[in-house]
Amino acid sequence: KKYKVVEVKENKDGTVELVVENENGEKKKITLSKEELDKLKAGDTVELK
């Protein structure tokens, strides 16, 4: 499934919390490390299994 990044929030521990949404409007929260996030920004599309 493809999800669009709608919100990006940095946590104090250096991880980043993303809120992503698919075309049905379903939202998910995922947490990434700073390194994983470096290639993402709001409006990008991510694929989740």
Score class of each variant (00 low, 15 high):
Leu18Asn: 00
Lys12Met: 10
Thr15Gly: 04
Gly14Cys: 02
Gly14His: 02
Thr15His: 03
Lys41Asn: 08
Lys34Asn: 08
Thr15Asp: 04
Leu40Cys: 08
Lys34His: 13
Val8Ser: 04
Glu21Trp: 03
Glu21His: 03
Glu7Ser: 10
Lys49Pro: 15
Leu32Cys: 12
Val8Cys: 13
Leu32Glu: 00
Val8Pro: 00
Lys29Asp: 02
Lys2Met: 11
Thr31Pro: 04
Val5Lys: 00
Val19Tyr: 05
Ile30Pro: 00
Asn24Ser: 13
Glu23Asp: 08
Ala42Pro: 15
Leu40Ser: 06
Val46Thr: 06
Asn24Val: 13
Asn24Lys: 11
Tyr3Ile: 08
Val5Phe: 02
Thr31Val: 11
Val46Asp: 14
Asn22Ile: 06
Gly43Cys: 10
Lys12Gly: 15
Lys12Arg: 10
Asn11His: 12
Val46Tyr: 00
Val19Trp: 09
Val5His: 00
Asn24Leu: 12
Val19Ile: 11
Glu36Leu: 09
Lys4Pro: 04
Ser33Trp: 13
Val20Asn: 00
Gly43Gln: 05
Leu18Pro: 00
Asn22Pro: 01
Asn11Trp: 05
Lys1Ala: 10
Ala42Ser: 08
Glu26Asp: 13
Glu36Cys: 13
Glu47Asp: 15
Lys28Ser: 13
Lys27Ala: 07
Val20Ala: 02
Val20Pro: 00
Val20Glu: 00
Leu40Ile: 15
Leu18Arg: 00
Leu48Glu: 13
Leu48Met: 07
Lys2Leu: 10
Thr31Asp: 02
Asp44Thr: 03
Asp44Pro: 02
Val6Ser: 03
Glu35Ser: 11
Glu35Cys: 13
Glu7Met: 08
Thr45Leu: 14
Glu17Ser: 08
Lys28Trp: 12
Gly14Asp: 03
Thr15Pro: 01
Thr45Gln: 02
Lys12His: 13
Lys27Phe: 11
Asn22Gln: 04
Ile30Met: 05
Gly43Leu: 04
Glu21Gln: 05
Val20Gly: 00
Lys39Ala: 05
Lys12Thr: 12
Lys4Ile: 14
Lys41Val: 12
Lys29Glu: 07
Asn22Met: 11
Asn22Gly: 14
Lys41Asp: 08
Leu32Ile: 14
Lys41Leu: 10
Lys34Ala: 12
Glu10Ile: 05
Asn11Pro: 02
Glu47Leu: 02
Asn11Phe: 08
Asp44Phe: 01
Asp38Leu: 06
Gly25Ala: 02
Asp44Val: 05
Lys41Glu: 13
Leu40Lys: 05
Glu47Ile: 06
Lys4Asn: 06
Glu23Leu: 06
Leu37Ala: 15
Thr45Lys: 06
Lys34Ile: 12
Leu48Gly: 12
Leu48Trp: 00
Asp44Lys: 04
Lys34Pro: 09
Lys4Tyr: 09
Leu48Ile: 15
Lys12Tyr: 12
Asn24Thr: 11
Lys1Pro: 12
Thr15Ala: 03
Asn11Asp: 03
Leu37Ile: 13
Leu40Phe: 14
Val19Arg: 03
Thr45Trp: 14
Glu21Val: 13
Leu48Asn: 12
Lys29Asn: 12
Lys12Val: 10
Ile30Thr: 01
Glu21Phe: 04
Ser33Glu: 11
Lys9Ala: 06
Lys39Asp: 14
Tyr3Met: 12
Val16Lys: 04
Asn22Cys: 12
Lys49Cys: 15
Asn24Cys: 14
Asp13Arg: 01
Gly43Glu: 05
Gly25Asp: 01
Lys41Ile: 10
Leu32Trp: 08
Leu18Ala: 08
Lys41Met: 11
Glu23Trp: 06
Glu35His: 13
Glu21Thr: 06
Lys1Val: 14
Leu37Ser: 15
Tyr3Thr: 07
Ile30Lys: 01
Glu47Arg: 06
Thr45Val: 10
Glu17Phe: 07
Lys39Phe: 07
Thr45Ser: 02
Glu35Val: 11
Glu10Gln: 09
Lys4Met: 11
Asp38Phe: 02
Glu47Tyr: 02
Lys34Leu: 12
Lys4Cys: 15
Gly43Pro: 02
Lys2Val: 10
Leu40Pro: 15
Glu17His: 09
Glu47Trp: 01
Glu36Pro: 09
Lys41Cys: 06
Lys49Gln: 15
Lys12Gln: 13
Lys49Thr: 15
Lys49Glu: 15
Lys49Arg: 10
Asp38Ile: 08
Lys1Arg: 11
Glu47Met: 02
Glu17Val: 10
Glu21Arg: 03
Glu35Ala: 13
Thr31Ala: 04
Leu40Trp: 07
Val46Gln: 03
Asp44Ala: 07
Glu36Tyr: 14
Asp13Tyr: 03
Gly14Arg: 02
Glu23Phe: 07
Gly14Glu: 01
Leu37Thr: 15
Glu36Lys: 06
Lys12Asn: 14
Lys29Arg: 12
Tyr3Gln: 08
Asn24Trp: 14
Lys27Glu: 05
Gly25Ser: 04
Ala42Asn: 11
Glu36Gln: 07
Val46Asn: 05
Thr15Gln: 06
Ala42Tyr: 04
Lys2Pro: 04
Gly43Asn: 10
Asp44Met: 05
Lys1His: 08
Val8Tyr: 04
Ile30Ser: 01
Val6Lys: 04
Lys28Thr: 14
Ser33Asp: 12
Lys28Ile: 15
Asp44Gly: 10
Asp13Asn: 09
Asn24Pro: 01
Leu18Lys: 00
Lys39Trp: 06
Ala42Asp: 08
Lys28Leu: 15
Ser33Val: 11
Lys9Arg: 12
Glu7Ala: 08
Glu17Pro: 00
Asn24His: 13
Glu7Gln: 06
Leu40Glu: 01
Glu21Cys: 08
Lys2Cys: 15
Asp38His: 14
Thr15Lys: 04
Thr15Asn: 06
Val6Cys: 08
Asn22Phe: 05
Ile30Cys: 07
Val16Asn: 02
Gly14Gln: 02
Ile30Ala: 02
Gly43Met: 04
Asp38Asn: 14
Gly43Ser: 05
Gly25Arg: 04
Ile30Phe: 06
Leu32His: 02
Lys34Gln: 10
Glu35Tyr: 07
Leu37Gly: 15
Leu32Thr: 09
Glu17Gly: 06
Gly14Lys: 02
Asp44Arg: 02
Asp38Pro: 15
Ile30Leu: 09
Glu21Pro: 00
Leu18Thr: 01
Gly25Trp: 01
Lys27Arg: 14
Val6Asp: 01
Asp13Cys: 07
Asp38Glu: 12
Leu32Gln: 02
Lys9Gln: 10
Gly14Leu: 01
Lys9Ile: 11
Leu40Thr: 10
Ala42Gln: 09
Asn22Tyr: 04
Leu18Phe: 02
Thr31Ser: 09
Val19Met: 08
Glu7Cys: 15
Val16His: 05
Glu10Phe: 03
Ala42Lys: 08
Ile30Gly: 01
Lys27Gly: 03
Val19Gln: 06
Glu47Phe: 03
Lys12Trp: 13
Val19Ser: 07
Glu36Asp: 12
Val6Gln: 03
Glu10Lys: 04
Gly14Asn: 04
Ala42Gly: 04
Asn22Ser: 15
Val8Phe: 07
Lys27Ser: 07
Gly25Leu: 03
Glu26His: 10
Gly14Pro: 00
Lys2His: 08
Val16Thr: 05
Thr31Gly: 03
Lys27Val: 11
Leu40Gly: 03
Lys12Pro: 13
Val5Glu: 01
Val6Leu: 11
Leu32Pro: 01
